[in-house]
Write a protein that binds this DNA or RNA. Sequence first.
DNA 1: ATCGGACTGAC
RNA 2: CUUGUCAGUCCGAU
Length: 454
Amino acid sequence: MSYRTIKSNKGSKTPGTYGKTINDIEKLSELELVTEIQNKLKNYRPQKVRRKLIEKDNGKLRPLGIPCILDRIIQQSFKQVLEPIVEAQLYNHSYGFRPLRSTHHAMAGVQSLINKASLHYVVDIDIKGFFDNINHTLLIKQLWNLGIQDKKVLACISKMLKAEIDGEGLLSPLLSNVVLNDLDQWVANQWEFFPLNKPFKSRVGELLAKKRTNLKEDYLVRYADDFKILCRDWRTAQKWYHDVRQYLKEHLKLEISLEKSRIINLRKHQSEFLGFTIRANKKRNKRVAHTGIKTNKKQKIKAEAKKHILKLNASPSSQNALLFNSFVLGIHNYFNRATHVNIEFSRLAYDLRTFMYNRLKSVGKYEHPSNPPPTYKKFYSLGFKTFKIANVYPKHLGGNDKFNNLRILHKEVHKLIHQTDKQTIDKLINKLGITMPMVKKINIYREQCGLELI
DNA sequence: ATCGGACTGAC
RNA sequence: CUUGUCAGUCCGAU
């Protein structure tokens, strides 16, 4: 139905080894396409994949397989069927590769656990070569347990898995969530979901009762294979470290990296997650999460910025200036969520200031912006001078921006944002006729409040 | 309201 | 230089 949803870009010129191009497919009639796919599925044999290399933190490169167009259509359709089934059963604090969830949601989850629950010990676990070491027969079993019990479907999936030995296809992100969901549930069952004999009226009351038991208090936050367990003290943290290691080994046949996995006391040291640094600093008599940008990331940003400035110096076209702007806005947009953005970005701007001035003074005018575009006004105050190149103002890294916390909302929608009871949430959604994009927006606000996503 | 182009991040 | 999934942002067109 929707092969158009598969992005093709300019990469449509890969005939021969990768089979049909997106242009070929658009020429086919619907019927021809369907028969083609049916033929392929009869004896499904995934074709070659192109590879993209992605750089990991430690500088190592790992391949990411990109299957040919026809396989992408097939895998996409598998995904569209499997996703809602799996999605409904996944753990709430698993954030990687899931619709409506992002890195920012994961970070917000960690921060609220530090701030609200005062959990300052974090168990960082790094699984050794996770994507390469997934146990296929186990995965098929896990899918079966989740309710996918069509043997033909499972056979196709297992063939796809075999073809993707050292890369991943479209649905391996989804499958990675299937594998690690067992871990999520196992961890959560020991505290969060642990049933008490007495029913409790309020969640606070239940929480207090749980604290009196000798269960290990903990919460897990996961983004794909990158996960943390937050605990209150060092002893429980250590217990978790060993328990999780054993669980992964026995039940999922996965090893952890002993060098990279460790327990961190956030009051003394910082942990890292999704490009951010995290620590728990003193604020009056409390401790709150302070987040910044990872140092190696900062260096990369500086290097990239310099590259962009040089390009702008070489050819000061409006196109390049706009390109530079989208680069800056992109970075801002991601790292805005850090509590220390202002400090981090001011330093970046300071380090780059002379470089930028020297390179741009010959190609642009240094002036107070006159009649700047609305996005410029939104982010930067007008009191400062900036460059003007080919009629556009390049944005600087490190604008001190005020936060827009004031929004006018519908009364019921406001209720929905702060609501924690699942039934009332569902009721409200039905009553107000909330659509997907609306849920997205509401989740943004819920993220800011540190609440669970809908 | 739709549909394109660009950029950022995580994997 | 080329390019997958998810999320976000900017710009443009009708």
